[in-house]
Amino acid sequence: MKKLNTLTIAALVSGPFLFQAPVSAQSIAPVNLPVMPIAENVQQQDVSNFMKVSGVISKVIEDDANLPKLIVEDKEKTTETHLNITDEALIFNSSTTEQLKRDSLKEGLLIDAYYDKHKPMLMIYPPRITPEIVIVNDEEKTGNVKVGLFDDNLVSLDNDLKLNIGEKTVILNEKGKNISAEELKGKELIVFYTVSTKSIPAQTTPTKIIALDIAQKHMLEEAQFAIGDDYYMEKGEKMIPIRKVAEHFGYKVEWQNKSATIEIRQQNRSFLISIGKEQYSYNKSLRYFKVVPEIKNGKAYVPEEILDILGAN
């Protein structure tokens, strides 16, 4: 039997890998491979729904849809990553905590990009990533940012940071609406802060906290997949089949023939929707659709706006 040299043994032991060693962008040609789940390690899986890529923007390119694609290099300029910036990306300054526009992403900026690790991605080099969050590191002012899951005591699951909510702490959801501190528990948070203690975990009073509901976002994406081509446009609004989407979220749906109404129930949540009427009830409070629900091909369709309510916790 022939002896194996050291490199051969190392290759057999290590097995397949993703971007294991730093290499130059010019030395490897892109290879199209099947779509695979994003690689994760146990710690990242437990403490956050996101993976992070950091580097300096070396080039900004506009794609066919006039959306920017960032070429990001590490500090040694040995590896690069391509970031596709969509309209949905949340972009913030690390110090001012202000939300930025896409056109503020310029060459020379040091950024941290966070992408949903549960989404599939092509295993090619350089990696192509569509980040949900982009943090622009302010070079002039101090500003720290922590992205991760926090427990009911507002301690990050990696035991790195504990949050003490102050009177001036701004607390928002990802749509920019004010929420309570109670709504932060068990959520993925973007935490902006300046100083922290040297304890374990470090403690801080954040300047701003933004709560992300990743589970809800995934459910909404799955609902859109379930709808597929079963929709139509009416007065600029997307009309979707209410029974299909409500049952997707686990609701019980009943049709009341005499009154031409749809009753949707799940635990302590209930909806009553009338065909041909803009007004509907949600937990006995009155709300209004932009377009009236109607029957087409034996199915009831309502405006897509109801998805956010059905998918809410």
Rank of each mutant, 00 (worst) to 15 (best):
N5I: 11
N5P: 05
I9Q: 08
I9C: 06
A10Y: 02
P16H: 09
P16E: 06
A21M: 10
A21V: 04
V23W: 01
S27P: 00
S27K: 01
I28M: 13
A29P: 00
P34F: 02
M36N: 09
P37S: 07
I38S: 12
E40M: 07
Q45N: 14
D46Y: 05
M51G: 10
I57K: 07
E62C: 00
D63N: 15
L67W: 05
L67P: 03
E76W: 08
T78L: 14
I91F: 04
F92T: 01
T97W: 04
D103T: 06
G108V: 04
D112Y: 12
K119A: 13
P120I: 10
M123C: 07
I124P: 02
I124G: 13
Y125K: 12
Y125W: 10
V134T: 07
E139V: 09
E140L: 07
N144S: 13
L149H: 02
L149G: 06
N159D: 08
D160K: 08
L161E: 03
L161S: 06
K162H: 01
K162P: 02
K162Q: 12
N164S: 09
I165D: 02
E167G: 08
T169H: 04
N173H: 02
E174Y: 01
K177H: 12
I179L: 06
I179F: 03
I179T: 11
E182F: 06
G186S: 05
G186F: 03
I190G: 00
F192C: 03
V195M: 07
S199H: 02
S199Y: 00
P201R: 03
A202W: 00
Q203F: 05
T204L: 02
T205W: 00
T205I: 14
P206C: 07
T207C: 00
T207S: 11
K208P: 03
L212C: 05
M219R: 09
E222W: 00
G228M: 02
Y232F: 15
K235H: 10
E237L: 05
E237K: 09
M239T: 03
P241D: 06
I242T: 06
I242H: 05
A246S: 15
E247A: 07
F249E: 08
Y251V: 08
W255H: 08
T261K: 12
E263H: 05
E263Y: 02
Q266K: 15
F271P: 05
G276V: 03
Y280T: 08
S281M: 14
N283T: 11
S285V: 15
F289G: 08
P293N: 12
N297K: 15
K299W: 12
Y301E: 09
E304A: 13
L307V: 09
L307D: 05
D308P: 03
I309K: 09
L310F: 13
